[in-house]
Structure formats: C-alpha cells, structure tokens
Design a protein around this nucleic acid. Structure first.
Lengths: 222, 222
DNA sequence: AAAGTCAGTGAACAGTCGTACTCCCAACTG
DNA sequence: CAGTTGGGAGTACGACTGTTCACTGACTTT
C-alpha cells in the first residue's frame, strides 16, 4: 500500500555520494497535490461522487498517474482522514492541556474549535460529510479515529478531581458526548451563513457545553 | 420490475361513467416505486453518486419516465426528506406525549427511537447520511425540518414545571441538544454490528440523556 | 363515439468514467 | 560509467451517464 522508503535508513549513506531525495520528494509532492486537489473538490461534493480523473485533471497529471499513489478513490479518502484528523488531534491536545476555571476552559475550548474550523474548513467539512457517507472504508477510518479521541478525552477527564468515583463506562460516555458535540459544532460553524450566524452558533455551543458540565457535576447525586 | 396493472382497481370504477382516478393512481404508484427503489439503493451509496438511470432500471421503467415525476435526482432527494421526516415527526410526537417520571420517560424515548430505527432503517440512514452530504438542496431541506423539530421540542419542554424561568434561547438550546442526540443515536444504532452492540449503544444513549437531564435540573443554579 | 391528454417508450446524442496497455526519460544504482 | 528503476504520458477501450426528441396507446373528457 505505502511506497517503500528504502533510502530512509540509507539516507546518510546516500547523502554522501548521490542525492537521495529528489525522486521521492517529487513523488510525495504529487501525492500531496492529489490530496489537496481532492480536498478542494470535496468542498461541494461527496467522496462517492468524486471521480479519479477529476482529481488528476485538477492537479494537471495523467489519470494513470493516480494509481502510482493510491489504489483508488477510497484509498485516497482514507489518506485524507489521517491528514484531517491529524490536525484535529493537535486541537484536542491543546484543549485538554488547558487549565483553570471550568467555565473559562469551556469558553476557550469553543473558541479554539471555531478558530481551527476557520483555519482548516475543508478538513472539518470532509470529516463531517464522510462520517456517515457512502464509502465504507472511509467511514470506518473516521469512526476508529473518533473512538480513539473519545478514549483520549476520557483519560484526561479521569485525572480531574470532579471525576472521582466515575467508572470507565461513564467516562467514555462523557468523552463521546464531548467529541460528538465538537464535530457537530464544527459542522454548524461551516454551515453558518455569516459572522453573525457564527457567533450565534458559538453562543449555543457554549450553552450546551455548560449544561453538560453542570450535569457532570451532579452525576453522582443520583 | 413492476408489472403494469392498468385494470386492477379501474374496472369497477371505470365501468360507471367518468372516473378520473386510474391514471393518477398509476402515476403515484410509479412515483412511489421510484422513491422506494432510490431509498433501497441509497443504503450503500450517497445521493450525489446515485444515478437517475440506476433508479429507473431498478423500477423497470425507461430513464425518460423519471422526468415525469422529478426534475432530477436532487428533487427526488428532497421528496425523500419529506417522506423520511414524516415518520420522524410521528415518533417525536409520541415521545413528547409521553408522561410520567422523568427517568421512565427517558428510557421509553430511547427504546422508541431504537424501535423506529429498526422499523425504518433506510429512512434514518438517508437522513444521517445526507444531513451533511454533498447535495445542497437536500441538506437545506433536512436542516429546515430538524430546526422545526427543535422548535417543537422546545415548545413542549417549555410547558413542563422544570423549565420555569427559562428563556427562549435556553429552550432552543436544549431542544437542539435532544434532536441532535436523537439523530446521532439513530446513526449509531445503524452502525451497530449486532444485538450486543445495539444494547451497548442504547445504554450509552440513556446515560447521556440522563446527564443532560441532570444538567437541565441544575441549569438555574449557576 | 370522437377528440384530447399524458405517462411511458426507444433511439440517439455527446459526454465522462475507470482501467489496461505501451512507451519515455529523469533519477537512482552498482 | 552503463544499467536499472519507476513516475508519469499517451492512447484506446467498453461501459455508463444525463438529456433531447418524436412517438405510441391507454385513460379522460366532451
């Protein structure tokens, strides 16, 4: 599936005499160009209707060149999932590393999501669209990644004093609620018509998070 | 696929004098056949990759006949939204009409959702898939319907004693939370691998609803 | 009983699609 | 240096797409 990188460990050896990277670098460049073009095209289409030729045409390479990088459109989709959720991973890390008052953290989280969505709209749109989309492998890849995020969030939540006495099921449940809410908020931000709409979405998202946090605080009272 | 039955119900009526029913009934029948075939095909595809010819082939009708009923695939999608969310409307009504202890209501709601998903899986799959899908008009139709549901839920919530002192924004926020959670739960049920998975999804959904309800109870404490 | 309506037909259009094949030449190898 | 590798180009194929047009014949109307 992935191209062998034989010069990776031989880099230092090759670095002496022969130039090691030109060919690989070019290949990676084309590959990235394919991914970028696909992501752009996917802003107003869904993956299952994305044509292989359409992508190569946008990049300016022959249709056959596509196969040098991916088995088919589905494989490209899976690669896009990795790319998109890489940036998401960074964002979640930043949110979890946040400290301070619960209310402030909540605010900062929503703002952070809004900023990332504004910076990488295509990535979020792709994830939201293909999460329930028509291409099986891509759907599964996204589900697996989001499940990983849920566990990560649950693990972070577990270390906080508010979560004393919570069992694993409850922690995962709350983590899932947070992750789902994040994806939904991102999608709502993308659908927002203008700056005013966006602020409204942010306000609502904050309110909803506050309610969830409130429920969390009284979870063990039942 | 479907045989013509021109004389099926027309005989006795037509025998009288002027009965303007046969033709329209046939037309509606074909239209419904197109909708049904499309919904079946959409179980493993998304609307933007659904071909017009594909649908007519499944019904057993010439491709051109499609235009007698819809402007194009997008229009068929919008019609499917109305059909699908009609059944959803009934379900929400049943949930809201429920009375009794908050915990029992919550349980019954989740069970009701699970039952409806089991009865009409294709409808729910379609909604979940096209909610963020690639066809604009369909996305907007779904968004409009879900917004209407949110308002309906908010209105129902407002009448309950627990919601005294809540403003409109807060009620809509909570309604949106419930509606979003319902769609997400339905989607999770559809992705469930087996009966064991389904029960797990139901358990988690119940837990999440309980947390939200808990947050609701303490909303005005802040 | 004659005239009209119209859902459905079948052929033909100009495209696009994925994919298999051969070939080329710059980059790498020993 | 000669020899190999491999990303990409080019061509060609059959299958499928949405849409048009003139048309038929069963149902409706007058």
């Amino acid at each position: 599936m992935y191209p062998f990188l034989p010069s990776e460990n031989g880099c230092l050896l090759n670095g002496m005499s022969h130039t090691p990277g030109i060919r690989q670098a070019q290949k990676l460049k084309t590959r990235q160009a394919l991914l970028d073009a696909a992501l752009t095209l996917l802003e107003e289409k869904s993956l299952s209707s994305l044509g292989l030729r359409e992508v190569t045409r946008a990049v300016g390479v022959a249709p056959t060149a596509f196969y040098r990088h991916f088995d088919g459109v589905a494989a490209l989709g899976v690669a896009l999932v990795e790319e998109a959720l890489g940036s998401l991973h960074g964002m979640i890390g930043a949110i979890l590393a946040d400290t301070g008052d619960s209310e402030e953290r909540l605010d900062r989280s929503v703002v952070l999501i809004a900023r990332h969505v504004a910076e990488q709209p295509a990535h979020f749109r792709f994830i939201a669209r293909e999460q329930h989309g028509g291409v099986g492998p891509v759907r599964e890849a996204i589900a697996a990644q989001l499940r990983a995020f849920t566990e990560e969030v649950a693990r972070a939540i577990a270390t906080e004093p508010q979560s004393a006495g919570w069992d694993r099921q409850d922690l995962l449940m709350l983590g899932g609620l947070y992750v789902d809410h994040m994806v939904l908020t991102a999608s709502a931000l993308l659908d927002a018509a203008g700056p005013e709409d966006e602020r409204e979405v942010v306000r609502t998202a904050r309110r909803q998070l506050r309610l969830v946090t409130l429920g969390r605080a009284h979870w063990l009272d039942s």
